[in-house]
């Protein structure tokens, strides 16, 4: 399938890219890795008149922890997250997520930021980064603004980004002492959309009580979801088996899956429950191992 015709621009700087977006408005789309946009264009689900390719802009592939914040640049690809020693050592939630996004070939081109802007509720990064309490930086003609990820993700394939803005940075709070994360996904095969997936990030005090919990759900709602009731319930508790069971039930209750070829509504909800319990147990083990 051949996409509809479009004009192509490959600006050399961010201000140039923003100016192109300002000039072309709704007609224009940013392309980075293109692993979501190009399939959508081939199916003619997307027909942008102009593609603004940001891959030739230098300096957008940063991935570093600075002053308590992990900064992920807009050209960081899934494979780079997967291979990064920093991510592997300090951010197990993100490392596990990176290793299950699409398939290894797609991971060599697709970007984390592009996945967030695409805002597919079955995208892994939305759920994982909600659990990690990520924020996003949008750059437009008027400068930068920063939003919590949950305010950025509005609806299916819909975000708070304006047509003249580019997602230029993802900011993840660096892990506190005694914290850990995990991402668990059920998929029929590599590369298929998730049946369900759950990402968690938890921190504990010196007595083993939970001081903060993030629980993100993938592919079980109109957007990536935060299981707020489960998060609130976990605060102050030790992770005894019955506590995890209850958190799993609360996460399942927060999901609103739709039946499809991957499973019924009831099955998916139950998988959210089970994945939540297992992910919390694994994250706690990591947090308390040190």
């Amino acid at each position: 399938m051949i996409p509809a015709a479009f004009d192509y621009a490959a600006p050399g700087s961010l201000p140039e890219a923003v100016e192109l977006l300002r000039r072309h408005g709704e007609e224009a789309k940013v392309i980075a890795g293109g692993q979501s946009l190009i399939p959508a264009m081939r199916f003619r689900l997307a027909r942008p008149g102009v593609l603004v390719d940001i891959q030739r802009i230098p300096g957008l592939d940063f991935l570093a922890e600075e002053e308590g914040v992990l900064r992920i640049g807009p050209l960081v690809r899934h494979a780079e997250m997967e291979a990064s020693p920093l991510i592997r050592d300090r951010y197990p939630l993100l490392a596990e997520t990176a290793s299950v996004v699409a398939d290894p070939l797609v991971r060599n081109l697709g970007t984390v930021a592009g996945s967030l802007v695409h805002a597919d509720p079955a995208g892994d990064w939305g759920a994982a980064l909600l659990a990690a309490r990520a924020r996003v930086v949008l750059t437009g003609p008027g400068g930068e603004r920063e939003l919590a990820l949950e305010d950025f993700l509005v609806d299916t394939f819909t975000t708070a980004i304006s047509p003249d803005e580019i997602l230029t940075e993802i900011r993840v709070p660096a892990p506190a002492p005694r914290s850990g994360g995990a991402y668990l996904k059920i998929e029929r095969k590599v590369g298929d959309f998730a049946t369900a997936a759950v990402g968690v990030q938890v921190a504990f005090d010196a007595d083993g009580r939970c001081t903060a919990a993030g629980v993100g759900l993938c592919a079980v709602g109109p957007t990536s979801l935060r299981a707020r009731e489960a998060e609130a319930f976990l605060a102050g508790k030790r992770f005894e088996p019955e506590v995890l069971e209850r958190a799993g039930e609360l996460a399942a209750a927060a999901s609103s899956p739709v039946a499809d070829t991957r499973g019924s509504e009831a099955y998916k909800r139950d998988m959210v429950r089970i994945l939540t319990v297992r992910a919390l147990a694994r994250a706690a083990e990591r947090a308390l191992a040190a």
């Binding site: 293109g34 190009i38 390719d53």
Partner: peptide, 18 residues
């Protein structure tokens, strides 16, 4: 699948201009 600067990618999901 082809290698782009040594990394395997799906050449049906990349514009030649890229």
């Amino acid at each position: 699948t082809v290698l782009l600067d040594g990394r395997p990618v799906k050449s049906c999901t990349l514009f030649a201009v890229q």
